[in-house]
Amino acid sequence: MYRIIKKLLGNSASLIGLLLLLVFILIAIIAPYIAPPLFPDPYQIPRMSWDIEPQPPGFSITDDMRFIYESLGKPVTREQAIFGTAQGGYDIFYGLIWGTRTAFRVGIITVVFSMFIGIIVGSIAAYFGGWIDEVLMRLTDIFLSIPFLVAAMVLTTILGRGLDKVIIALVAFGWMGYARVIRGSILSTKEEAYVMAAKALGVKDFRIIAFHLLPNTIFPVLVQASMNIGSMVVTAAALSFLGVGAPLGYADWGQMVSFARNWIIGAPGKAGEYWYAVFFPGIFIILFVLSWNLVGDTLRDILDPRLRGEL
């Protein structure tokens, strides 16, 4: 373990990744202080105006909006939208800050749950083998045979809008990779002497899987998981882009980018006049995914047994 941490810190790429992650964690923690919420639901992005057209960084809150917030007993603490406003007058800065929490939630919950399902399915299939293996693996094949994005879109459309629905959809069609990996590694370790010994001693199947097999096979899954956190956030963003993600006005990076979809170019002669609408959300997504990938990539190199001792 110590060796892993040392390597992670020693490699400049992963160091950058870790630092970035730290920054994001920090943002998520102190969100209520840098962007105090104006609504009971903090994930509801406050509007700075009723304008549909995005407004540039430094845009001041309009009078009717100030009136609204003051009448609601919420004095406006931030006069300006320092990153501008997105389509519909939503404060981009606020959306990005609280969106960090959303990103962690989506990424981590999705990956943890799909990993959990994957581990259960994969280990049961590998350990018991025979027809159980056959049934579970064919089931996995069926789920794999539906294109991930389309399946997730269908499920979110059916369940309705909302981040929880997105997570359910991503988990329902995201566990198969883990199941395959864990099955593969358990198949190769289950014949080893210490497992045989445990079996001979009459240790229960469940205990063998949980305490003997999994600890020795879980590393590749963890690496895969860490890299998937980033890609899950991108997939959730893609769902928002395709119009089936988080509800309108919810602090979610993907939605902020999809707000920018129709404004990406700007009027001729003023190319990129709405640059802020795509730049800030875009950079947040890219850096977030990048940080996980940098860490995950290095982890993989470290844990890849074939490369052991080379780094």
Partner: peptide, 8 residues
């Protein structure tokens, strides 16, 4: 909503 982008 996107009228401004073509006006000029």
């Amino acid at each position: 909503t996107n009228m401004n982008e073509v006006e000029e």
